[in-house]
Nucleic acid binder design. Structure first.
Lengths: 219, 219
DNA sequence: ATTAATTTTTAGCTATATCTAAATAGTTAC
DNA sequence: GTAACTATTTAGATATAGCTAAAAATTAAT
């Protein structure tokens, strides 16, 4: 079973939206993430349904199937391997690789993917810190540290909190430090262990107490 | 001005057919080299004419324009650079690279092409011995003759093949007549034009048919 | 110089992937 | 529980790229 490049792109988008929490993904969600129109999405999900990579029932959201998930993971694998190649070997900056990897991810050659993986020394994470699925679709969990353990100038992504009280979550939401936010540690005050971080182009001060309750995956 | 992948493939075919002698290329020639139907070619050359990469007059052959030639050379440049990458870095055999390079040659990123060229140390010839155009479309020429045109006792190096089918490449690899191999013509049988050559301290017999498909640079 | 053969083009159809506009299904508000 | 709003699908276009079958132009043969 093979998908066209366009079908692969839709499937990848559906996979990413599914990952980001929701069990079922809406036509509008897909349309906005793909920068296309809902009508085009309707058409495409009918095709993806016929190929059994998603479950599709009219007027209800779509759910990715086991087979669809595996397919998506192989495309993501290729995307991230190429990103590693571009940065490690061809000296691209990590913010220059996405568009090129979007093209390279569709090259069909199992041998190429395998040899590239080998050549890059079986990397487990891409230049953005995202995990690279192996040939079976398995991913290595990323090591998590608390925000207070980070070094100055290190960048990362908020992935969880230790204290999940409503008050704490409300506070995080208010300052923009939501789960998934990409942050960078700007400064550490030796005196009290408080820190200064960059979130969404805004700087933010945080006590050591708060910082030690926030879990980070460094990039 | 950009062409679709399909337009790039047609243009490349027209370029290669033009190189192979004839000043003007027929619809049927293109159809058979592209393994498609003359009707499809008619359609496509109208499009390529509109984009001014070929000159097109109904019922006459097409001629590639200056602009078309430059465009074709850049696609060929990418194709051959990727072939070098696959063989030199990813340890592909030289008969396994064509299909993958056909896909990679369409990746659009001037930076990628430039960095790849750099990474490979600005190679001048691909694994089949064909010259790699530089960013201005210039190629380094090497005078080549076919193995069947060599004189007895003349020595040389295999630099390319005319027939690059997988079967032919496999055969050459098997007998040790790889690109780059240094050979010497030991004898020529007048009766059927078959020859005896020395390759890697081994003597090898070859039909005239095979010999005329192997290109040599004499030393 | 006609006729015959070949080549090339046109016409019309299929499939993918997109769009806009209109219709329909589902959800929310009062 | 109906009306209003939102989400989704359908219908009908456009553009690319291919096909077959038939028409038209060119070339070859007698």
């Amino acid at each position: 079973m093979t998908l066209t490049n366009s079908e692969e792109n839709y499937l990848k988008a559906i996979y990413h939206l599914s990952e980001a929490g929701k069990k079922s993904v809406s036509t509008n969600d897909i349309a906005s993430s793909m920068k296309t129109k809902p009508a085009s999405v309707s058409d495409m999900i009918r095709k993806l349904g016929a190929k059994e990579v998603i479950n599709y029932r009219k007027y209800y959201g779509v759910q990715i199937t086991e087979e669809g998930q595996n397919y998506a993971l192989q495309v993501i694998r290729k995307h991230r391997l190429w990103e590693v190649f571009l940065v490690d070997k061809l000296k691209f900056n990590w913010d220059e690789v996405h568009e090129v990897a979007e093209q390279l991810e569709h090259v069909r050659s199992p041998l190429l993917t395998q040899r590239l993986d080998e050549y890059l020394n079986f990397p487990k994470f891409d230049p953005h810190g995202d995990p690279i699925p192996d040939e079976f679709g398995d991913v290595k969990a990323r090591p998590r540290i608390s925000l207070s353990e980070m070094e100055v100038d290190q960048a990362g992504q908020i992935v969880a909190v230790k204290d999940s009280s409503a008050a704490f979550l409300r506070y995080l939401d208010k300052v923009g430090a939501y789960i998934g936010a990409r942050i960078k540690l700007l400064d550490k005050v030796e005196f009290d262990g408080s820190i200064e971080i960059l979130v969404d182009q805004k700087t933010l001060f945080m006590s050591k107490d708060v910082a030690s309750n926030i879990l980070i995956v460094v990039s």
